[in-house]
Measured scan of single mutants.
Amino acid sequence: MQVTWGNVTVTFSNPEEAKKYAEKVARKLGGQVELHNGQFRIK
């Protein structure tokens, strides 16, 4: 499962870890987490 924002992509084998990481990054950037085609995207 991947977490992407800007031109950065981070890949996780565990979807739960990916979700936690995406939420943490979104909080830092003041963005929203979207699940899109099996990727968490931060907008």
Rank of each mutant, 00 (worst) to 15 (best):
E16N: 09
E17H: 10
N14Y: 05
R27P: 01
S13Q: 11
G38W: 02
T11S: 12
T11N: 13
E34L: 07
E17W: 08
A18W: 02
A26F: 01
W5R: 03
K28D: 09
V25A: 05
K19D: 02
V8E: 06
K24E: 13
V8G: 04
R41Y: 15
G38P: 02
G31Q: 06
F12V: 02
R41A: 07
H36R: 10
E23L: 09
K28V: 14
V33G: 00
V3H: 00
E34G: 03
M1F: 15
R27Y: 08
L29G: 03
A22F: 03
N37Q: 06
M1N: 09
V33F: 05
R27F: 08
P15C: 14
I42C: 06
Q32I: 15
W5I: 14
V3Y: 01
A22S: 03
E16I: 11
G30A: 05
V33H: 01
V10W: 11
G31C: 12
K20F: 08
F40N: 03
V3C: 05
Q2D: 11
G38S: 04
A18Q: 00
K43H: 11
K43C: 15
V25D: 00
L35M: 13
E16T: 10
Y21M: 05
Q32R: 12
V8M: 09
T9R: 04
K24S: 13
V8A: 06
N37K: 08
V3L: 04
W5M: 07
K43G: 06
N14W: 04
T11Y: 14
K43Q: 10
G38V: 01
Y21T: 02
E23V: 08
V8S: 06
V33Q: 01
W5H: 09
I42Y: 01
N37G: 07
G30F: 05
N7R: 07
K43S: 12
V33Y: 06
N7K: 09
A22C: 04
N7E: 11
G6H: 10
P15D: 05
G6D: 15
T9F: 05
K24C: 15
K19N: 05
P15H: 13
R27V: 09
Q39R: 08
T11K: 11
G38C: 11
V25H: 02
Q39G: 15
T9Y: 05
E16Y: 09
Y21W: 11
E23C: 15
K28W: 15
T11R: 09
K20P: 01
V10N: 03
N7A: 07
F40P: 03
E16M: 11
Y21D: 00
Q39D: 07
A22P: 00
L35I: 13
K20Y: 10
T4F: 08
S13Y: 08
A22I: 04
E17Q: 12
T11V: 10
V3D: 01
G38E: 04
E17V: 09
A26H: 01
V8L: 08
N14A: 07
W5Q: 02
N14G: 07
K19V: 07
K28M: 14
K28S: 10
R41D: 05
V25W: 09
S13V: 09
E17I: 10
A26C: 05
V3K: 00
V10P: 00
K19E: 07
Q2W: 05
K20M: 13
T4A: 10
L35T: 08
V8D: 03
K24I: 13
K24Q: 13
L29Y: 11
W5K: 02
Q32T: 15
H36V: 15
E23Q: 09
K28Q: 13
L29P: 00
T4Q: 11
N37W: 02
R27E: 11
T9N: 04
I42H: 01
A18E: 00
V33N: 01
K43P: 05
N7Q: 09
Q2E: 12
Q2H: 08
S13T: 13
Q39E: 12
F40Y: 15
G30T: 03
N7W: 08
G30P: 03
Q32D: 07
H36F: 12
V3G: 01
N14D: 13
Y21V: 04
M1I: 14
Q2N: 11
K20I: 13
E34W: 06
M1C: 15
K19C: 12
A22G: 02
Q2I: 13
Q2M: 11
R41S: 07
N37D: 12
E17D: 13
K28H: 15
V10A: 06
G30K: 08
H36Y: 11
Q32M: 12
L29C: 12
T11D: 06
V10R: 08
I42R: 00
V33W: 07
K28I: 15
R27G: 07
V25T: 06
